[in-house]
């Protein structure tokens, strides 16, 4: 008895085999009845059609949140499984969730980082909205609470531990003891140095990613990532302070924040963050 011919496709990034001649709508009825949106090979597909070898299909019900396993499978496929496995078990600390820290947290949550430990004493103010990843209806909220809300809308399966507290030499080692990589994302220069001193003294084998010199609107390529000493990775141009004429603004702060997030990722993967 001969078997009916089949074709290999992907459904939500997972390999699948279906009989040759299967239609898109028949597959929808089988896998996700009532799906509002059908995406075929990266583009919305309103009409029915016969599936071809190698097609990639995603079914979406608007408003439905994918389960943890489905989201993990989608990300593992994008990141490659080995890379994603490292990301998924990583713990990253972020001190300060203003312009740098809120963008770093979002970047890491989007790639499905295992756990974030974030600390900040501040609340969302109107002047923050020119660069910080908060919304106008979050004014007055503690930044860590607003960030938790925003991260949960991006990926509800990322564990986020929040501390609404002013960091000092005593509580830094207690709060960030479990991290694999630490991120300095403060605004004040003296606080940046204090965090480096307290963290490196408590955890001499762990890395910390620091930012310094990111204000204004100078060229993006003046922001660099470099290693300084055994533990520190320093992002920024190292000279441009926030002052009249060189304010802190979303574009360049965002460049620095994503240098920091990428440095974290490279450190977790055992790669040289400077990469020269």
């Amino acid at each position: 008895m001969s078997q009916s011919p089949t074709i290999a496709i992907k459904i939500s990034e997972r390999p699948a085999t279906v009989p040759k001649g299967t239609t898109l709508h028949a597959l929808r009825a089988e896998h996700k009845p009532g799906a509002d949106v059908v995406v075929l090979n990266g583009a919305p597909m309103p009409e029915d059609c016969i599936l071809q070898e190698g097609d990639e299909v995603v079914f979406i019900r608007r408003g439905e949140i994918p389960g943890r396993e489905e989201l993990e499978a989608l990300m593992a496929s994008r990141h490659t499984p080995g890379v994603h496995a490292v990301i998924k078990r990583a713990v990253v600390g972020i001190a300060g969730v203003g312009g740098l820290g809120s963008a770093i947290a979002i970047a890491l949550a989007r790639i499905g980082i295992g756990k974030l430990i974030v600390a900040d004493f501040d609340v969302v103010e109107p002047s923050n909205l020119n660069r910080q990843q908060y919304f106008i209806d979050q004014l007055g909220q503690p930044k860590v609470a607003a960030l938790l809300e925003n991260l949960s809308r991006i990926n509800p399966y990322v564990e986020v531990e929040t501390h609404h507290v002013r960091l000092d030499r005593e509580n830094i080692p207690k709060i960030f003891g479990a991290v694999d990589v630490m991120v300095e994302a403060f605004d004040r220069a003296d606080q940046k140095a204090l965090l480096v001193e307290a963290f490196c003294r408590a955890f001499p084998a762990k890395s910390i990613v620091v930012a310094t010199g990111l204000a204004g609107h100078m060229p993006s390529n003046t922001i660099t990532t470099r290693k300084v000493g055994k533990q520190m990775v320093v992002v920024g141009d190292l000279v441009t302070a926030a002052q009249p004429g060189t304010g802190l603004m979303a574009p360049r702060v965002g460049v620095a924040a994503h240098h920091q997030a990428n440095a974290v990722l490279r450190l977790l993967l055992g790669e040289d963050p400077e990469g020269c």
């Binding site: 140095a193 204090l194 480096v196 001193e197 003294r201 533990q231 520190m232």
Partner: peptide, 15 residues
């Protein structure tokens, strides 16, 4: 200054 980071032999020190 509190903002100065000092490393000795690549390790940050407590000022």
């Amino acid at each position: 200054r509190p903002s100065l980071m000092v490393l000795i032999n690549d390790a940050p020190i407590d000022k």
